[in-house]
Design a protein around this nucleic acid. Sequence first.
DNA 1: GGGTATCTCTGACTGAGTCAAGTATCGGAC
DNA 2: GTCCGATACTTGACTCAGTCAGAGATACCC
Lengths: 310, 310
Amino acid sequence: MTVQDIRAFNRFYTNVIGALDYGRHLYAPYTLTESRVLYELAHAPRTDAADLRAELSLDAGYLSRILNKFEQDGLVERAPSEKDPRRRRISLTPRGRDAADLLDERARETVGSLLGSVAPGDRARLADAMRSIRDILGDGHAPGAGEVVLREPGPGDLGWIVQRNAALYAAEYGWNTDYEGLVARIVADFAQDHDPHLERVWIAELNQRPVGCVMCVRDDTPATARLRLLLVEPEARGLGLGDRLVEAVIDFARGVGYRELVLWTNDVLGAARRIYQRHGFVLVAEKPHRSFGKDLVGQDWHLHLRGSGE
Amino acid sequence: MTVQDIRAFNRFYTNVIGALDYGRHLYAPYTLTESRVLYELAHAPRTDAADLRAELSLDAGYLSRILNKFEQDGLVERAPSEKDPRRRRISLTPRGRDAADLLDERARETVGSLLGSVAPGDRARLADAMRSIRDILGDGHAPGAGEVVLREPGPGDLGWIVQRNAALYAAEYGWNTDYEGLVARIVADFAQDHDPHLERVWIAELNQRPVGCVMCVRDDTPATARLRLLLVEPEARGLGLGDRLVEAVIDFARGVGYRELVLWTNDVLGAARRIYQRHGFVLVAEKPHRSFGKDLVGQDWHLHLRGSGE
DNA sequence: GGGTATCTCTGACTGAGTCAAGTATCGGAC
DNA sequence: GTCCGATACTTGACTCAGTCAGAGATACCC
């Protein structure tokens, strides 16, 4: 089913790329491959012919001929590489740079006109989708890819917490809308009245996209903090993200002077439980209840914050 | 900036497609174009040579030659079209169908192995991103594309309402987190306790993606309903979506017996105001207030539901 | 019925890309 | 030093995808 989608997309995008070059005017008077060589020459810091071949997967003979033509047209100069006289150092002449710039501009224009036909409101979505595909389908050298950062919530992030909590627990455990209501209430309470020194929310971000969260608020008991709404997206699991989030809460709670950190969870949430255990939480009470359309067993966990042995 | 992104994506995706066919084994013993012809023949209901030419933008002579080869290999049969003897009806022989199936399977396998290298959690995101790109970049014949449906909220949709309200009003009017808290509270109240006969939320969906919402709840005054949280995503504006959402609320409120429909909004929200006016709401009160980090002018609007002239 | 456009086919061609052979050099083994 | 296999590049010969122009047959319009 997803294979179908990908193939459909491939067919579709092949057409998009094809349409961009309708009538070959895009690369004239060069071929696509020649243009790629020019582009590479203009953008790569230093280039031997062998690098070009490797980068663009070109046949050695073919490349040699292309460079012949470029040399005749005065676009490039060939010199032996200093280190290895077998290799040839290729460099663009000013004229070659002009040619590359021209192609570059033409490409930019063409893509720009394509973009012009996209509703402004869709542009961000388009860029977003393209970035997602690149992130997922390799291209690991995207800047900052794979790096997780914790940050404070921005506009919409609290809503995101509600949305993802509800959607995930509905999908994974079949919880109903009551749970969404509960999360919305927790979030509403936090948004409308919280002491920024003693209460905080963290959003974990991976590739510019929220993938996890946790909240720390004052509990009814004095000097007690409560950890709530720990969540890690399935796509970001296995990165130790849950540990980092819980750690952030513990450090924060200890730092601002709480004596104790408590949390309430349910026994079905095994992965979360293991995280709590790793960080020294102990189970102090367990009670069955019926909530969110399911029969569950609620658990209270505690962690003393002053020293480790107190 | 976005043009850059698109070009980077094009280069990237050209490589992806190229890598899928590494070594031409994918289409052997046919060429890419021949494979496209086979694919088209296997999937199009009825095909004259002219249709193929149009669909695949092929040169007439080239196609003729390809069909020659296919006929020699026993993959297709050529017969004159009934309606127009100039045209040729092309049909796959069983052997041709086998060949098409083989190619199909090989493509599916190749894509499948690509997909195999994608983390399972990322697959849905990938499919989603691809669908977005197709939706945005044309391909209008995607099934159901461009069609807006109103539906009841599913898991996560209430959270979506919070998220989008907060993010949009922050971006467009600079409202702060108080607004997100207010929306979260409204949503929480609805989720935790509402009478499904008298209170309801609608989600507007475009291409499988929520793009708008509105809520109808009981007001403090008896027999009065309140319209809240009307929102249309920028990308979906201009489709009359706001009208449809407001209409849904009015119809519902009238249908279940409310006498009056009221709403509170702010004068900066001009587009929304025009929608309310179009549906007969009248402004009954205006009051400045300071909320969401801004100085605003709140407005109360009323609509009588029993008959139009009462 | 005449003129024009459309559909298909074929011959002749262009030009992108491949393959293989040849020259020059490197780097390691002896 | 020199022999050997590997690597870098070049060139000639080739394949084959795709284009163009012309010809024969037929449809459509007046």
